[in-house]
Design a protein around this nucleic acid. Structure first.
Length: 516
RNA sequence: GGCGGCGUAGCUCAGCUGGUUAGAGCACGGCACUCAUAAUGCCGGGGUCGGCGGUUCAAGUCCGCCCGCCGCUACCA
């Protein structure tokens, strides 16, 4: 490859007011694993995450904290950096919507869309409750027998209009449908794609894209009193970080993004509004938007009122980072909803990681340490059983590549575990402990075959469990320069010393009475 | 209400354009092994594939109806 393939992957920008929980950790982790996989596979990767820091809520929260908005967001956006750090996230940039570069990008994008004739000034109306100082959706209001209309809090609401800029979304319906038809992989999973298409087909209204009722946002160029409303501000972050509007910026080569990872709640903004904005501005839309599912906790919906919001830091503290990362991507088909429970977490850690995988490494490398003075043997003549296992290990890269391409993280891991199980079966069949005296040369070949299989697994699982797999590669004596996917094609030579292994994963005792 | 999807072993799910005795993992039972983090391997029980009725030489796999469940049906960042 003269010109390395490039990959651009993004998380949503997280609303800075939120407290980071398992859901944020999940989205970011999925992107991280994808980014790490592509890097190891030779791609030049740009991986972006960040925080969304504008809006009335932030303004109010800052006021409540007795702070100006900017210093307030400086402080709370740290929560999300801390989460990324605790999760070993390999993002290349962290964008904040309060940065000057983002204001420049928003203004430039606004002007392009305005010049294209897709913005016009009108009135935005909504049901406003003076008592709550909030707007409500019509569906949230109820009409009393006496004819008064009340909001969800019981406060009376009135129809209030404010001047607002509108994006002519209604004009983009056909072009969006054509875009979806021409790009069948643009929205995943497929069920979500169907929903979006059906939504667009049902007819699109123009979109209110500015507000005059608050000031904490990006000012609309040439329109005093207006700040950009959420969509045009937040979504723009993806091109801001790529250097927009400087199309000569080195990072602009990464646009269009290969993958916007989002929760299913914000799919519409990414799959409908965002490509429409971009096409209006003459910018290529992203290649793919993946909407993943939600986690429940011990069978219940996660909510502040139930007090069951899972703090990722606590889980990492109890089970370790890599087991947590593994669990999140292994437990459920990516895209579907899932349940986080102690029982399930412990089962994955103890069985999949400690017993099946960790113990496979331990029994192999421990044997080498104890019986061969830590000298990893070189292979002699390979037999059919050896070659079958090695072929399965070598087949893993193309298999996992295909699964990663469609974000089937669970399937990629399952295919790796098929090799783990086969290796355990192989070691029992070959019984190197019996060969020790009977046929030491054959024993060496068996141990090498296992080590080479472990090397494949360790290299390929680095994206999911970077720390543990680095340890395993250390234990196998694999040089730091030989740990990318290209190195898979160069067999482990053997004949070198390896350290006495330490268990890769520590089991956790399953306490009774916990969880469902 | 409209549109879309789902209902397959105790649990979580695979089963592409219909084709021999319906699969995996977990859980459960038996056996083997004892190199290993009391780990692992092998074998096995168990399913009227939601119900009814069609199409077909042949249907979890297509069609119709019914029952149950879920998602979407726009301005919260």
């Amino acid at each position: 490859m003269a010109d390395a393939a490039r990959t651009y992957v993004t998380t949503p920008i997280y609303y800075v007011n939120d407290v980071p929980h398992i859901g944020h950790a999940y989205t970011t982790l999925a992107c991280d694993v994808f980014a790490r996989f592509m890097r190891l596979d030779g791609h030049e990767v740009f991986f972006l995450t960040g925080t969304d820091e504008h809006g009335q809520k932030v303004d109010k929260a800052a006021a409540a904290a007795g702070m100006a908005p900017k210093p307030f967001t400086d402080k709370v956006s740290e929560n999300f950096r801390a989460l990324a750090s605790a999760m070993d996230i390999s993002n290349d940039d962290f964008i904040r919507t309060t940065e000057p570069r983002h204001y420049r990008a928003c203004e430039a994008l606004w002007r392009r869309i305005h010049d294209a004739g897709d913005l016009y000034l009108g009135d935005y109306g909504g049901w406003y409750a003076v008592r709550d100082e909030a707007f409500y959706r019509e569906s949230e209001t109820t009409v009393q027998p006496d004819g008064t209309r009340l909001g969800p809090t019981g406060a009376p609401v009135e129809w209030v209009k404010e001047p607002s800029w509108f994006f002519r979304l209604s004009a983009w319906q056909d072009r969006l449908l054509a875009f979806y038809a021409a790009n069948p992989d643009f929205i995943a999973p497929e069920s979500r794609r169907n929903e979006v298409i059906s939504f667009v087909k049902s007819g699109l209204e123009d979109l209110s894209v500015s507000r005059t009722s608050f000031t904490w946002g990006v000012p609309v160029p040439g329109s005093d009193g207006h700040v950009m409303y959420v969509w045009l501000d937040a979504l723009t972050n993806y091109i801001t970080a790529a250097g927009y509007p400087d199309e000569a910026h080195p990072r602009w080569r990464f646009w269009p993004a290969d993958l916007h990872m989002v929760g299913k709640d914000i799919l519409r903004f990414h799959a409908v509004y965002w490509p429409a904005f971009l096409m209006s501005a003459g910018i290529a839309p992203p290649k793919r938007v993946f909407a993943h599912g939600w986690w429940t906790v011990e069978g219940q919906k996660m909510s502040k009122s139930l007090g069951n919001v899972v703090d990722p830091h606590a889980v990492i503290g109890e089970f370790g980072l890599d087991p947590f990362r593994f669990f999140l991507l292994r437990e459920i088909p990516f895209g579907a909803d899932g349940d986080f429970s102690r029982r399930a977490m412990i089962r994955r850690l103890n069985i999949d990681l400690a017993n099946e995988f960790g113990n496979l490494a331990q029994r192999t490398l421990g044997f080498v340490a104890r019986n061969l003075d830590g000298m990893l043997p070189s292979p002699d003549v390979l037999g059919g059983d050896d070659e079958a296992l090695l072929a399965q290990a070598k087949g893993l890269l193309p298999l996992m590549r295909a699964e990663m391409r469609r974000q089937a993280f669970h399937a990629a891991l399952e295919s790796a575990w098929q090799v783990v199980r086969e290796a355990n079966s192989y070691i029992d069949r070959q019984a190197p402990w019996k060969l020790r005296k009977a046929d030491p040369v054959r024993m060496g070949t068996v141990l090498w075959t296992l080590a080479e299989t472990l090397r494949h697994l360790a290299i390929l699982l680095q994206p999911v469990m970077p720390r543990s797999m680095a340890r395993l590669l250390d234990q196998l004596g694999v040089d730091a320069r030989d740990r990318d996917f290209a190195a898979l094609a160069r067999p482990l030579p053997g004949g070198h010393a390896v350290p006495t292994p330490e268990p890769l994963f520590r089991k956790v005792e399953d306490k009774e009475g916990q969880g469902a």
